[in-house]
Design a protein around this nucleic acid. Sequence first.
DNA 1: CCACGGATTGGCT
DNA 2: GCCAATCCGTGGA
Length: 204
Amino acid sequence: MNNLQPFEKLPKKFYTRELLTVARELLGKILVKIEDDKLLAGKIVEVEAYDGLIDEAAHTYIGKTKRNEIMFNEGGYFYVYFTYGAHFCCNVVTGMKDHGTAVLIRAVEPIAGIEQMAMNRYNKTSLSEKEKYNLTSGPGKVCEAFNITKEHYGIDLTGDKIFLLKRRKIKGSDIVVSKRIGIKKSVELPWRFYIKNNPYVSRK
DNA sequence: CCACGGATTGGCT
DNA sequence: GCCAATCCGTGGA
C-alpha cells in the first residue's frame, strides 16, 4: 500500500530535464504543502506544459518580465500567477536556466488535510458528493484548497514548505494526451496530460 | 445537460 | 484600455 512507498522528495535533477518528460512524470507524484503545522497533500492527476520559445500561450513567450522571471530559472521552483482578477494557478518550473518552461498543475486528488481543503474551498468540513469531487478539479481550485497565493511565488521545491514526493511513473497506457484548456493561442499543441479515469481531472 | 456571462486584479501595450 | 493558463451561478432545452 501507500505507506510502503518512499516518503522522499523529488531531487533537483527531476525538474531540470526536458519539459514534456517532466510534465508526463509529474502525473502520480504527491504535492505537499506544510504551513502553520498543517500538512496538505494531493496526487497530481492533470497537468499542462508551457514553453516560451515556441508556444504563444506561455507567459514567457514575450521574454523576461517581473511576473514570469522565475520561469527562466533552472527547474525546481514554484511559479504562481494570478488571473481573471480572482484565481491563483501554480506551476513547476522545468529545464535549464533561461529555458522559460513550466508545467501547470491543473488538478490533484486530495490525500491529506482534506478537512482543511474543504474549509479553504467551502468554509465547512462536511461536503456533498459533488462538492467532494469539486475540491481540487481545476488549477484555481487546487490553489484555493491548498491556500497557495502570490506569497508562494518562487519557492524552491527542494525546500521544506512546498515539495513533491517520489512515486513510481504512471504507465503510458494510463495517460491521456490532449490539447490544452482555456487558452486562445497555440491551441493545437497536445501538451495536456492526465490520468485516465481519475474523477478529479477537470474535464475529459 | 450545455451555453453564456459576470466577477475583479494586475500585467502589458 | 484590453484582456487573461478560471470558477460559478443562471437560464434555457
